[in-house]
Design a protein around this nucleic acid. Structure first.
Lengths: 187, 187
DNA sequence: CTAACCAACTAACAATTGTTAGTTACATCA
DNA sequence: TGATGTAACTAACAATTGTTAGTTGGTTAG
């Protein structure tokens, strides 16, 4: 049950990724599913409804994941490593949805404020982890904004690039990425 | 002379950044300039023309900058540092245009192939620098794709975030960013 | 068997889209 | 003065937009 709606969301996410929310018409979406535009409305209530369903659900996944990480008493570097894994997992799971999250959130109407709230909270937790790492002497004392920005943009853009791999390969990918982000690239 | 067209491009870039190319109408753009939509066509030949003018000119700036860097005989780490400076400078110079470059290139029509060509060439040069750095023992022997990806996405997203600063502050910002990207964040 | 439901359809709508044609006021230059 | 050019305007266009109303055929439940 509900499977038709999920197909619609999946197809919509893929089209949104190609052309962006605004450039995808209900006729484009319908035609990609082999039906007529009006038939979509048996399953969803509006175009906006589709965007909300895609974006908010992923934003909640991130919020949850961050909550779990913050509730454990680990070192900052351990937490950062867990955050890398979280992003890798969610990006592999739904890369097209991640694209909408990154590129189409500004077209949210009613739910835009809720999205921004979640995003700000997430960033704030991230920043706190960095600060604690610096206080504890685990991280270099460099401008916090630069560290937060460079790590977060890389992680947020993972969907653009992440390879389809099996579980073990994905594990080692996560570890290499954490290595680059945390320990740098020079010898 | 030509100053009106430049105003149009500047305003367009700012609107494209807010809502994306597809969601900005010629009436939106005109109204932001205090004129009527039809009047725009005294200065530009089409909406597509505006996007091309913005995106291609910045893509050429990057191509040129990379050309200059590749023509010098420096170590890989020196070249990477120069690339960071290049991105910082161009991002400060025209952040809204950078946004179009990153988010609206897929709406290019005639010039899309030219854009993709420049982008691929740029990436290929970047990748070559990393490989040489690894061969020369200047860089750790980590997956080249991961290094290229994580550095480039951070640099490409700089416009989202770069602070308005004076020249000396900008210099030290560039240096801190290069430090994070190349030498990592842990102690 | 029949009632209800599902998921598709056709047809149409009002609004909005990029763009063109033709006009007008004003400034510059011969 | 008169010619040319610039940059705005009004009015209109054909196409496309998201969405609604009403219908239909097939499947499921009582």
């Amino acid at each position: 049950m509900e499977s038709r709606k999920k197909e619609i969301l999946k197809t919509a996410a893929s089209l949104f990724r190609e052309k962006g929310y605004s450039a995808v018409t209900m006729r484009d979406l319908a035609s990609a599913l082999g039906i007529k535009a009006a038939s979509l409305y048996n399953h969803i209530s509006s175009k906006q409804d589709i965007l909300e369903a895609i974006v908010i659900s992923i934003a909640e996944d991130f919020t949850e994941g961050m909550g779990r990480i913050m509730n454990q008493s680990n070192t900052s570097i351990q937490k950062l490593t867990q955050i890398v894994h979280l992003h890798v997992n969610l990006a592999v799971q739904n890369p097209n949805g991640m694209s909408a999250l990154n590129s189409d959130w500004m077209h949210l109407e009613k739910k835009q404020a809720a999205y921004i709230q979640m995003r700000d909270d997430y960033e704030s937790n991230f920043r706190q982890i960095i600060k604690q790492g610096i206080s504890a002497g685990e991280l270099k004392d460099i401008d916090v904004n630069i560290v937060v920005f460079s790590m977060l943009t890389t992680l947020r853009s993972l969907y653009l690039w992440i390879p389809k791999k099996n579980i073990e390969e994905l594990q080692s990918f996560s570890e290499d990425l954490a290595e680059v982000l945390i320990r740098g690239i020079n010898t």
